[in-house]
Simulated assay, not measured.
Amino acid sequence: MTFKQLEAIYWVVHLGGFAQAANKMHTTQSAISKRVQELEALFDTPLFDRSLRSARLTEKGEEMYLLAKRLLEQRDAAVEQFQRPEVLVRHVRIGVTELTAMTWLPRLVSAIQAKYPKVVIEPHVDVSVVLRDKLLADEVDLMITPEVFDDQRFVSTRVGAVENAWMCKPGLVKRRGRHRMHELADQRLLAQDNRSGTGQLYNKWLRSHGVQPENALYSNSVVAIIGLTVSGMGISYLPKKCLAPMVEAGALEVLQVAPALPPANYAAICKSDRKSLLISSIIALAQETCDFSWMFQTE
């Protein structure tokens, strides 16, 4: 019995098919089938019910899948524990949102490569809901998103927070010092939609304060929201520190609104059954490097 055979049955079951397992393992579907057949021949028992079109396990197949999962986890843990960081070879897919990609992602990747020079990092940039689905489907190994998912299948570690503020094009809103939220109701709200973790957080927060915008434009892109705000299309909640240069340049104006927006906490999230020493180390590096205060960080 080999690890390649165990990996074959594990990924066929985990991803729902032989083709998906072949793609995951960078091989052919026939090679995956051969490895499964080798296991069946070794123990003289069918592992999949071939009377069905889908890859459904037999009773013995269920036992083999659980054994494969346990042995593969033990193998990976042993490798990570005893192999020096500088020679550890892995491919890690990290899902991040647009704001992280625009700010501190380069610093995180640099920190990982400095500690694990042979670990290949593959960033996936998308909205929080899509990243959550990718994590559940094992299409990413870790995601860094706003802390909005309460799911027992995940392990969540806070890495930082974003201070947001209401902003608009200078002069769009009459200067009257501090505003109450309902006083801005005649302005179009430019907001992130519920596919965004930040959108979920603030849309829920607005509802809790009795604010139901009738004139709103929703987008899943923070870059689009910034562009629309700069052009004078409405008001929006935007990250205060990293957009300070645009405020200083006169492209944006910060509005003083009460009550103030709560911070958007960010977390590094992985599946509870897939956490490893390497992922834990990367999460610790994310805590050290997380910084939303300026754009396109290189140091």
Rank of each mutant, 00 (worst) to 15 (best):
M1N: 08
M1I: 14
M1V: 15
K4N: 14
Q5N: 13
L6W: 06
Y10W: 05
L15T: 03
G16K: 01
Q20Y: 09
Q20K: 14
H26I: 12
T27G: 02
T27V: 01
T27K: 00
T28C: 04
S30A: 13
S33H: 14
Q37D: 11
E38N: 06
E38Y: 09
L39T: 01
E40P: 00
T45S: 12
P46G: 03
F48T: 03
D49K: 02
D49F: 00
D49P: 00
S51D: 12
L52W: 02
S54K: 14
S54Q: 13
A55N: 10
G61V: 10
G61R: 00
M64L: 11
Y65L: 02
L66E: 15
A68S: 06
R70K: 15
L71G: 05
R75V: 10
A77T: 10
A78M: 11
A78W: 12
E80R: 02
Q81H: 13
Q81N: 12
Q83T: 10
R84N: 09
V87S: 13
H91W: 04
R93L: 01
I94M: 03
V96R: 02
V96M: 08
T97E: 09
E98N: 01
A101I: 00
A101T: 08
T103M: 03
W104D: 07
P106K: 04
R107E: 12
L108A: 07
S110D: 15
Q113M: 10
Q113H: 12
K115E: 11
K115T: 09
Y116K: 03
P117L: 00
P117I: 06
P123H: 06
P123S: 06
S128T: 11
V129N: 02
R132V: 12
A137I: 00
D138K: 09
L142F: 06
P146V: 03
R153T: 08
R153S: 13
F154D: 10
V155Q: 11
T157P: 07
V162W: 01
V162H: 00
N164L: 09
C168P: 01
K169T: 00
P170N: 05
V173N: 07
G177F: 01
R180N: 11
R180K: 12
H182S: 15
L184P: 11
A185R: 14
D186C: 02
L190A: 13
A191W: 14
D193R: 04
S196A: 09
T198R: 04
Q200A: 06
N203S: 12
K204P: 00
L206H: 05
R207K: 11
H209E: 08
G210H: 09
N215V: 01
V222F: 13
V223C: 08
L228C: 03
I235L: 09
I235G: 07
P239V: 02
P239C: 03
P239D: 02
C242E: 08
A244S: 11
P245K: 07
P245G: 04
E253R: 03
L255V: 04
V257Q: 06
V257L: 02
A258K: 07
P259R: 06
A260E: 15
A260Q: 12
P262A: 08
A264E: 03
Y266R: 08
Y266T: 04
A267Q: 03
A268F: 07
C270Y: 08
S276P: 00
L277V: 09
I279G: 06
A284Y: 00
Q287M: 10
E288T: 10
C290Q: 02
F292Y: 04
F296K: 11
T298A: 14
